[in-house]
């Protein structure tokens, strides 16, 4: 081990930290996230690596899962259930919705359990706790990318040629991540305190698929319900994905704006709530 030089003649300016009971609600201290960016990076890498360790198919699972789901759902809902898809091939229409949905459900269930799942870490090491739900939200983006590659194959099969709008896909993926993080902050912090969350979350995610336009088009939602329906921010993401991926897909963007507002409010509220709960995580967990 090399020796650090604390030279008296050239005093090093040492970083100073003051530990005291926290005051105020608005001290979000996002700068500390930047300091710990390497930890975020390595946790994301860990989550991605661990997920496919000791599996035969490895990362191919990230493609296989949505493709298999798409095939089964197409048979059940399109062939048997005759659910319309606004005139686009149902498999393409469905898969474009499954893409963000798989990401959101995965990221939310991982992000929501990220604190309780790392309880030993929280009681033994210091780092900004925000890193845990954050990296759990980022990691499944890798799966999303792989599932997207599979989608390109599907498009080729149905001879769908993407337009320039596909370039805006990252924007909607970012929106999906923002929604998931907003929800993940609340869920993960509440889970530390109330283990009920462990029962509620899977149910919530399962039902979420049906209150979002994954299996059916928004046009099937009765006109009078749409204003309320649009408050679900997942609607904007799914519609955005379809708009970017399927040429000629029409989106009523007036539906998108209110949900954006909701996301911003929930995200900021989540940050404040998370920060205020963070102080007691190590004591309660």
């Amino acid at each position: 081990m090399s020796v650090i030089n604390i030279d008296q003649r050239h005093p090093v300016v040492l970083p100073h930290v003051r530990i005291q009971p926290a005051k105020g609600l608005l001290d979000l201290d996002l700068a500390s996230l930047w300091q710990y960016r390497e930890l975020i990076h390595i946790l994301v890498w860990r989550d991605v690596t661990v997920r496919y360790k000791q599996t035969l198919l490895g990362v191919a699972w990230a493609m296989f899962q949505p493709v298999a789901t798409m095939l089964i759902f197409t048979v059940v809902f399109s062939v048997m259930g005759k659910i319309p898809s606004d005139g686009f091939p149902y498999p393409v229409f469905l898969y474009a919705g499954l893409l963000p949905w798989f990401y959101i459900s995965q990221a939310l269930s991982r992000g929501g359990t990220s604190l309780v799942g790392e309880a030993p870490l929280i009681s033994k090491v210091y780092f900004p706790r925000l890193i845990l739900p954050l990296s759990a939200t980022i990691a499944p983006l890798v799966d999303l990318f792989l599932a997207f590659i599979a989608f390109l194959g599907l498009m080729a099969w149905f001879e769908v040629v993407p337009t320039w709008r596909i370039l805006l896909l990252p924007v909607f993926a970012g929106l999906a991540a923002m929604i998931t993080l907003a929800a993940g902050l609340w869920v993960s912090a509440l889970y530390v305190r109330y283990r009920d969350v462990g029962h509620i979350l899977p149910m919530f995610i399962q039902l979420g698929m049906f209150v979002s336009p994954i299996l059916y088009p928004v046009s099937k939602v009765p006109e009078s319900w749409r204003a309320i329906y649009a408050l679900n921010p997942v609607v904007s993401v799914v519609e955005g994905f379809r708009w970017a991926l399927i040429p000629g897909f029409q989106v009523d963007f007036s539906m998108v704006l209110p949900s954006l507002g909701i996301v911003v409010v929930v995200l900021i509220g989540g940050l404040i709530y998370f920060r205020s709960m963070e102080r007691t995580f190590a004591d309660v967990i």
Binding site: L14, H16, V17, I19, P21
Partner: peptide, 14 residues
């Protein structure tokens, strides 16, 4: 080590 917060008092760490 900043894992938990004190109820009262301060620590300065350089």
């Amino acid at each position: 080590s900043r894992i938990t917060q004190p109820t009262k008092g301060t620590v300065d760490i350089y």
